[in-house]
């Protein structure tokens, strides 16, 4: 069970360490069900930390997002560790970043938070509209306890669980330096209903589905920016030479953008669902990514973000990889 006291103590100890730059955790937001990241440098900030069903965001994104500022001449680069609170899915992002050398093991301190599944913010905001003051939410037995301004409300877990959590197989951090509390039992079985449903449709229907989605994309690139795996200094899809996609917002460029992004995530997507969460147009981006996750798992027997020592999927092969599609 969530032990906030322990979290706070660990956080205090951690940021007091000489070799830690800061700790990234969650804090209550200023509005409704929203939380925001807390970049904690002082022990007294520990009281601001929370861990609750509201902690949807994957903070691992900040590990690679942090800008490496130019180091003044004569000064030493700051190589202190960053401490990071992770849920199960977030920890896989850290592992995958380690696999592809996005971060170094000694530069990160992972604080593991076994997780019972977070809220679907859209659903909860729909159910309890117009709430402006910050709301505290807790896990109960198979339910969420939502402490609204006019008293607590209990809602069955299934009703408000985020889509990515419905079938989660890794609620516990797969890697951590400190595990804050007891691990929970995984409930997912790795089947993807959304993917299956789409696969069963015919080609035309599938395209109609995606055409509709991609047409509504506004190419804000929020999906890319929130993704813990998209951290190239200079994204190929942004470049002018060669220019893979045009800036124009139309079905052609939008489709190519999403296909290219999905393909760059082959064997790398750890299913944290950030892309889908941040999409202002509500594109079911995980339904796209999950398809490849599934193929990679079923046909190539590979899952990313589990073993820091494993070879990256995209830079390896097996002599007996499937080839029944080859003429």
């Amino acid at each position: 069970m969530v032990d906030l006291e322990k979290l706070k103590n660990v956080a205090k100890d951690t940021v007091s360490r000489e070799d830690v730059k800061y700790l990234i955790g969650w804090r209550q937001g200023t509005y409704g069900f929203r939380v925001s990241p807390l970049f904690m440098t002082e022990p007294e900030d520990a009281d601001k930390l929370i861990f609750s069903p509201l902690c949807v965001n994957n903070l691992a994104t900040y590990l690679t997002l942090a800008e490496k500022l130019p180091v003044p001449r004569g000064a030493e680069p700051d190589t202190r560790k960053v401490a990071l609170m992770v849920k199960g899915c977030d920890s896989r992002a850290v592992v995958q970043q380690l696999i592809e050398k996005g971060i170094e093991r000694e530069s990160v301190l992972v604080i593991g938070c076994p997780c019972q599944g977070v809220l679907d913010l859209e659903k909860v905001e729909e159910k309890f509209p117009g709430i402006h003051s910050p709301v505290d939410v807790q896990w109960g037995d198979d339910k969420f306890i939502i402490n609204l301004p006019d008293g607590p409300q209990e809602v069955p877990r299934e009703e408000l669980l985020a889509k990515k959590c419905l079938n989660c197989r890794y609620p516990n951090p797969v890697m951590s330096d400190v595990m804050l509390w007891e691990e929970v039992e995984a409930w997912g079985n790795g089947e993807y209903a959304d993917v299956k449903e789409l696969e069963e449709k015919d080609s035309q229907a599938r395209w109609s589905f995606w055409q509709d989605k991609f047409e509504s994309c506004i190419r804000c690139y929020a999906c890319r920016n929130a993704c813990p795996m998209c951290y190239c200094e200079d994204c190929v899809l942004d470049r002018l030479n060669p220019q893979w996609i045009y800036r124009s917002n139309n079905i052609s460029e939008n489709t190519v953008f999403h296909l290219a992004r999905a393909f760059h995530l082959v064997g790398r997507c750890i299913e944290c669902g950030e892309c889908e969460r941040v999409c202002p147009m509500g594109l079911p981006l995980m339904t796209l990514n999950r398809k490849l996750v599934k193929e990679v798992r079923d046909k190539y027997d590979f899952e990313p973000g589990l073993d820091p020592e494993s070879k990256p999927f995209q830079s390896s092969y097996r002599p007996d990889d499937q080839e029944d599609f080859i003429l």
Binding site: K68, E100, D234, P312, S315
Partner: peptide
């Protein structure tokens, strides 16, 4: 300037012709 040092190419290269080296990028 744009390489992110992930080492995919290092692993892909059948000749071991690519290696990761540490460079100074603006002091980092």
């Amino acid at each position: 300037a744009t390489c992110r040092g992930c080492g995919y190419c290092v692993e892909i290269c059948p000749y071991g012709a690519i290696e990761l080296v540490t460079v100074n990028r603006m002091g980092n």
